[in-house]
Amino acid sequence: MTKGRLNIHVQGWLLALPAVVLLAAFTHIPAIKTVIDSFFSTPHGARPSRFIGLTHYHSLVADPIFWRALTNNLLYALITVPLAIAFALLMALWVNGKISGRAGLRLAFFTPTILPMVAAANIWLFFYTQDYGLLNKIGRTLGFASVNWLGDPATALPSLMAVTIWKEAGFFMIFYLAALQQVPPDLYEAARMENASRWQVFRRITWPMVMPTTLFVGINALINAFRVVDQVIAMTGGGPDNATTLLLFYIYQVAFSFWDLGYAAALSAVLLTALAAVALAQFFLLDRKIHYR
């Protein structure tokens, strides 16, 4: 009896072992190591790192660029996440209907997703360029003054947001499309029998039925919003005047331009905590309102 039980436990752990090893080696141990490193000074040549307690965190609170990066990032998440979700759902609803050329439309909407970020950034750089960029050419034809989209602190961050929304919406559309096709068609017929309007059908059937997808997509979009770095490097380098410096880009700068690894570890710990909190909150707040099939 006891032996059999033990056997089952051993078997269970053996089966879980590959996943445990992978997760531990590449996720959990590095995360813990980062948190530990954040309490130590950065080693310089002959000076080994030593325990300095919360010093990094004190300087972090006093660091204006950190605060700038944080507010930029929050703004970035707050705007790109809902807009990307809204566009994704709209596109999915559109290409889920019986329209001609819908395979082509689906492909068109999905294309931005398969483009590498650097390639996409190049395309948009061409759109945004000051004198001969596409946007300014169109704007000038319509009689507007030329705008330095990426060079002006007021427009640089929104310009980056537009690229993110454009790139992410198509990806999320695929998830919504799958979710929409899971809704049994007779639910819509039952609603038709009651003469429900299109808006009522959306609000009372479609939206609640795709809610699990919205939660999934929402968390992914939010995490992505805090993971953006390639786009900033390719398009603005964080400028002008840190207007487009996002958290991860700042961490990258601190770690690999300024080589202050201890401070970068502290920044990473803050980012990790924030993301974990966001994910937890989303699960707990939305979970009870969501119907899972």
Binding site: P184, M209, H291
Partner: peptide, 8 residues
């Protein structure tokens, strides 16, 4: 036939 009840 499937009842078509709204599951949520």
């Amino acid at each position: 036939q499937s009842y078509a009840l709204f599951p949520h």
